[in-house]
Design a protein around this nucleic acid. Sequence first.
RNA 1: GGAUAGGGUCGCCA
Length: 319
Amino acid sequence: LVSWTLMLLANAQLGHFRKTKSLWLKMPQRDLVSWTTMINACVAHGDFAEAKRLFDDMPQRDSVSQTAMVAAYAQCGHLELATRLLQEMPRHNLLCWNAILAATAAEGRISRASQIFEEMPEQDIVSWSTMLSAYAQNGLLDEAKQTFGLMPQHNSTSSTAMLASYAQHKQLRESKVLFDNMLERDVVSWTAMLAAYAHNGHVRHSERLFESLPERDTICWSAMLAALVQNGLYLEAFVVFDEMKMAGSIDKVCFVSILIACSQGGKVSTAKSLFVSMSLDFGFQPSKQHYCCMIDVFGRAGHLENAQDLVANMPYVPD
RNA sequence: GGAUAGGGUCGCCA
């Protein structure tokens, strides 16, 4: 049973939803853990209705499955349903409160979030970090600083959120002081610091940090790519982009950066083939951001007809 | 073996 569940989880995390589903149907037995894993797989796949059906059909539920469902409701914007489920629960569940708090903040409803934070039966480091990043992500540096100062403890999550907020406001010194004083650093904090250097024009510091890292994930690579592009190092950016392709560490954001490099470097045909390759070879549907970059590529190169064509034919409303 | 918080997204103009 445990190994079946592990396979289920592994496939779900790889995004192989069909495989996950067929494993689920073939499993000889299921328990709370496998049910919850399957619910999360459905949510991750965007099949909220199926997640809800599974939750309703579960032979029994525990606080973990309930939290998963509350988080699913909250992330879909069904905050009322999430809150109702929270109220039906036998005991206070801080994780459910945190999930609702995070979803409220993610909708940009900052004052509502801070109200929920006050109303919660208790707050843990996750609740505090959620409020901190709510302020940080909405550009409210003073509120973020205040929250950071009031928190009973810090960890790499809270420090990184604060670091990124300083970086956003181009306060490199403050970012660096925080980074140096962190007790534990991980790939997320390294990436935030790398980006902070790049935003302040210190791309060589970004590179030095990048090269010293014991581990790098896709976002970290992507931050390095963006750092080079932001600082006008297009040739190096293309080298890094090729390395990323070879390492299989590519996502949609990398294509934004590399299309910007094409635009600034006047590489129209390279941009065109990358734009096609993005969906054909990598399966990423171009976002509005990608279209904007392509329009910029054509516009800067003086290919105004192509730019206008793209605006007229793209599956987005121009802004 | 399952649930909640942190990092990457050009520039210009308004």
